[in-house]
């Protein structure tokens, strides 16, 4: 994959990697917290992209897996003293189980498209309401992890400074990028693209579409739940109303859609653009001196509207071509953009 990208792009990537590595030395805490947020959404976007961008299954309920991941790890930590790394295993298993149930029900009963999307919302909302009443996990009052001031970073228990969390999230996001890059070079990666493009034609080529879609859901839900584990230990509190909210699901998918669905760098670029946009608008409002609750979101929504209307394939494919990072795949009289894995 990287070998197919031209030297110019590789150089840019190396510079970016270097910048990310030394960021804690050159940035203040505020910038660092924004960076953590960007990496967080780059990671979850990458995870969601496996299901939608690669395999074509639109999930609008990914907050479900964040929530299950977060609650599993937090519950094990608070109630049984099990650290986040052990908890992560349970979190991933639990999320994959839920993903498997949703996937099995949907794909066995032939539910696709809009109906599948609504099914994922329904499961997320159902779970949210369930956690709202689960006293053992604090119900709607919230579930809290103990917070203590520490002298040193305890990586084993994920207790420590923002810098430690920054590096953990950077590692996760990088691993997700590498993992997805690898996935697209495997047989299943090709099969997913085939299913995304035309399920019936894929089946005629001997692809077991049910199995492939299940694998996509399992990988995507498992990856997403790790973000939940991070969320729990970074923020130290979990509220069903917040973590399972449909708004969170939408936040997860905005990045890849704005950046470019089905591409490897789209989710990362999208997450960065959205965070900078939100910050930029806040800054702008402060400069102008307007302080109205909601004005920021109106701008945000308007930008989304414009991007969706004028860059239907996302920002990354257009940007990559403009900057000459990928070689153009050739003339395209139909006007369709090739969603090449690199692009």
């Amino acid at each position: 994959m990287f070998s197919q990208i031209n030297p110019r792009a590789r150089g840019l990537l190396a510079a970016l990697a270097l910048l990310l590595l030394i960021l804690p030395w050159i940035a203040n805490n505020y910038v660092l917290s924004v960076a953590v947020l960007i990496l967080y959404f780059a990671y979850t976007g990458q995870a969601w992209n496996v299901m939608m961008g690669f395999c074509g299954q639109l999930s609008l309920g990914h907050s479900l897996y964040v929530g299950i991941g977060g609650y599993s790890a937090a519950a094990l930590f608070v109630h049984f003293g099990i650290g986040p790394w052990g908890g992560a295993l349970v979190a991933v298993a639990a999320s994959m189980l839920v993903g498997a149930i949703i996937g099995f029900l949907a794909f066995r009963f032939g539910i696709g498209g809009v109906y599948f999307a609504l099914l994922t919302i329904a499961f997320a909302e159902f779970t949210r309401l369930g956690f709202d009443h689960w006293q053992w996990l604090g119900a709607s009052g919230g579930f809290f992890l103990p917070v203590k001031q520490r002298e040193f970073n305890d990586l084993l228990n994920l207790r420590g400074s923002p810098v430690m969390f920054y590096y953990v999230m950077l590692a996760l996001a990088t691993a997700a990028l590498a993992f997805c890059t690898w996935l697209l070079r495997t047989r299943i990666g090709y099969y997913w693209l085939a299913i995304r493009e035309d399920q019936q034609a894929a089946q005629a080529l001997g692809i077991n579409t049910f199995r492939c879609k299940m694998i996509a859901v399992l990988i995507s839900s498992g990856m997403t739940s790790l973000a939940g584990v991070f969320f729990a230990f970074y923020y130290n509190n979990l509220f069903p109303e917040q973590i399972f909210n449909m708004g969170r699901s939408i936040e997860i998918i905005l990045g890849p859609i704005i950046g470019g669905i089905g591409t490897l760098f789209g989710p990362i670029l999208g997450a960065a653009l959205l965070a900078l946009l939100a910050d930029g608008i806040t800054e702008l409002m402060a400069q102008i001196g307007i302080e109205l609750p909601g004005i920021k979101q109106v701008f945000y929504g308007s930008c989304l509207l414009l991007v969706t209307m004028f860059l239907p394939n996302g920002v990354w494919p257009a940007l990559a071509r403009r900057l000459g990072l990928v070689s153009a795949p050739g003339p395209d009289p139909a006007g369709n953009t090739v969603r090449h894995p690199d692009g």
Binding site: L60, I253, G294, Q297, V298, T308
Partner: peptide, 28 residues
């Protein structure tokens, strides 16, 4: 004629604008 996720994004953007325009006009 665009894919479903594209339509979804468009209307989500419209929804975000509407909710917050109402918030600006009428408060929470």
């Amino acid at each position: 004629t665009r894919p479903e996720h594209s339509q979804f994004m468009l209307l989500v953007a419209v929804a975000i604008i509407m909710v917050n325009a109402l918030l600006i006009a009428f408060g929470p």
